[in-house]
Each structure stands twice: as C-alpha cells, then as structure tokens.
C-alpha cells in the first residue's frame, strides 16, 4: 500500500521540527569536511545537497558495539533494551533495499530481539538519488536510485517541492499527523517524478551485473589464481565489512566489571583468520584466500540462495574504504573483463 503527497520545500523544516518533537531525529550533517549521520540539533544544518555516498545507517539498527545484558551477583540477568523512537532522515534507496534483506536475516527464524525492537522504533525517510556518486552502482541491481516499494517514507526532490510516498500504514499515519503540510499530488507531479527518475538513471557511471558474475563463478570459471591475486592486496582492515550495509557478523565478549558483567556484541569480520578459530587453536580459514573467497561467495552465491537478493546493494562504500582496491565493484568489473576475454 503506497500513498502519495506533495510537500512544498518551505514546509520541510517545519515538518522535521515536528518530527523531532515526537522522537529523536537523525539526519545527514556536514561536519569537519565530511557528512555524517547524527542527532539533529539545528534543523537548518541538514545537508541534502550531499553526494549519494553517506555512511551506512546499519549502525542505527545494529550498532558497532551493543550491550546485550548485564549480569549482577552472577545470577541476576538484566536485559538492556534501547526503546528510543527514532526518525532517520535522508538515507538513500540502496540502504533501504539493504534493510529489507537485513529484516529477513534478523527477523526470520530466530528473531533477534535487539534488531527487532530498534527496527520497530525507527522510521526511515529516504531520498531518491538524483546525483549518484562515481562509485555508485545500485542501478544494475535494482536497489536504487529510487524504490517502488519497501520504503517507509520516500521523498523525491522535484525542485521546489518533494514528492512524498509512504510505503506502509505506520508511515501513512505519520504523514497524516501533519496533514496540513502536505498537498494532494497532481498529474504534473507524477510526470515530474518520473522525469527525475529518468535523469537520475542517466547519471550513473558504473553499470555492473552481479548476476553475470554469479553465473561466471558458479560455472567454475573463476580460478583460485584470480582469488589469489585479489587476496594479495587485502590489508585485512575489515573496512568492507564494517561499511557494508548488508554485513551482519558479530562477536560477543564478556566485560567483567567489579559491579557486574556486561555481555557485549561487536561488529566482527569474516576476513580475519581468528574469526573461525576453534577450541584448541585450530584455524579452518588460516589461508587468506579462503577468507577472501568466503566474503565474495557469501554475498554472491549464498545470499541470493537464502534471502533472495545479492549481499550487495551497489552502495559503493567498499570502493571508497578498501585500501587495496579489491572491492565488490572492482572485482565485478575485473571478472567481467575476464569473461569478455574467455
């Protein structure tokens, strides 16, 4: 169920202010030369003319470091929940696509209670990209630059106004709370929105088909020597995993304080050899090449089989962060070239 409205640009800051009064509002802000997501103090600081490439909003549902529960006196277990209601404003379509897979991953089977609660308490207001970065390649994956469904609230910048789409009942309720700010869309608005979609698509510099890469790998055409040359350049920083909106691995550790024990979970990386360390020090993935392959296989082979979508939404963050330049886009392009020469 999708409902549409028009929000005149002049109404945006008023609306944001209202949102902030009901819950905490997180938005992209320009600070110290970068754009980061943080709690919004001054509404006018929101930076929407930014490049598409923002930090992943994964951290708002699955924080880098999170206390699971406290244990006092060795017997009393106290659960820690963050019950805060939040609006995350200004995220991009690729990340919303990622959330749809994350939801399946965390909520199906055994439901992760921490993710689940944060997800229920968070409303994402996304913006259609009309100016993709050179590193972006969502267009080949159907995960951007705009979405047909799956978003909470999606805005499209039409110059002097936003085309607003609410994708679920909760979102519709939120818009209706401040109904007087929104107008009914006219025919021209729909046409303008379509125009924006078209021009945005035309601006992409990279078009990558991960489907081809997957088939190429599944056909057994990618030799270990290729993965070897990729692995050689790996700095083992874990940046691709930390930045990826779809990487979910974590480790758990106990912190023993004098006043209790904190069981904490932290982001972890399958690219490290200790990740699979078994009791007694056996390292099943001691060879670095196995770990590199594992990351790519997990995203390209396993994810589509199990969750119905690639473990990559084409956000291009790994392209920016990888010191060895062996990110998803680069590898996909290299494999495409290899395929062409076959």
């Amino acid at each position: 169920m999708t409902k549409e409205w028009i929000l005149p640009k002049g109404h945006l800051s008023y609306w944001l202010r209202q949102l902030r009064n009901t819950a905490s509002l997180i938005a992209p802000l320009r600070v110290d030369g970068d754009i980061v997501f943080k709690s919004l103090e001054n509404i006018h600081e929101v930076s929407l003319d930014n490049p598409a490439l923002l930090p992943s909003p994964k951290e708002f549902l699955f924080p880098q470091q999170e206390s699971l529960f406290w244990v006092e006196d060795g017997t009393k277990v106290r659960q820690l929940y963050n019950n805060e209601k939040r609006f995350v404003f200004g995220v991009r379509s690729c990340d919303i696509s990622a959330l749809r897979l994350l939801d399946r991953f965390y909520l199906e089977g055994y439901e992760d209670p921490y993710y689940s609660l944060r997800r229920k308490n968070t409303v994402f207001i996304s913006i259609v990209c009309n100016n993709p970065d050179p590193t972006c390649f969502c267009i080949g994956l159907g995960t951007g630059p705009y979405l047909e469904k799956g978003f909470d609230i999606q805005l499209t910048d039409l110059g002097d106004r936003y085309f607003v789409q609410a994708g679920n009942t909760k979102a519709i309720r939120i818009i209706r709370q401040w109904k007087f700010l929104f107008n009914k869309p006219k025919r021209v608005d729909y046409e303008d929105q379509y125009e924006v979609f078209l021009s945005s698509k035309a601006r992409f510099q990279k078009r990558i088909s991960l489907e081809n890469v997957r088939e190429y790998i599944l056909a057994g055409k990618v030799k270990d020597s290729f993965w070897g040359s990729v692995t050689e350049r790996c700095f083992e920083c874990g940046g691709c995993v930390y930045e990826c909106p779809l990487c979910t691995c974590f480790t758990v550790t106990d912190r023993v304080y004098s006043f209790g024990i904190d069981r904490v979970r932290l982001w972890d990386t399958c690219l490290f050899k200790g990740f699979t360390r078994m009791a007694g020090g056996i390292l099943p993935n001691e060879k670095k090449i196995l770990r590199t392959k594992r990351w790519y296989y997990h995203k390209l082979i396993h994810y589509p089989d199990v969750l119905g979508g690639f473990g990559c939404v084409g956000c291009g963050r790994c392209t920016v962060t990888c010191p060895g330049k062996i990110d998803m886009a680069t590898i996909a392009i290299k494999l495409r070239d290899l395929q062409d020469n076959d």
Binding site: G109, D112, F250, R265, D268, T276
Partner: peptide, 11 residues
C-alpha cells in the same frame, strides 16, 4: 566456532 548458535553471528 560459534557466538550465537542461531544463525546470526556468521562465525
């Protein structure tokens, strides 16, 4: 090696 036992931690 496992951290969660329920298919989330990835180890």
């Amino acid at each position: 090696h496992m951290k969660c036992g329920v298919g989330k931690c990835g180890h």
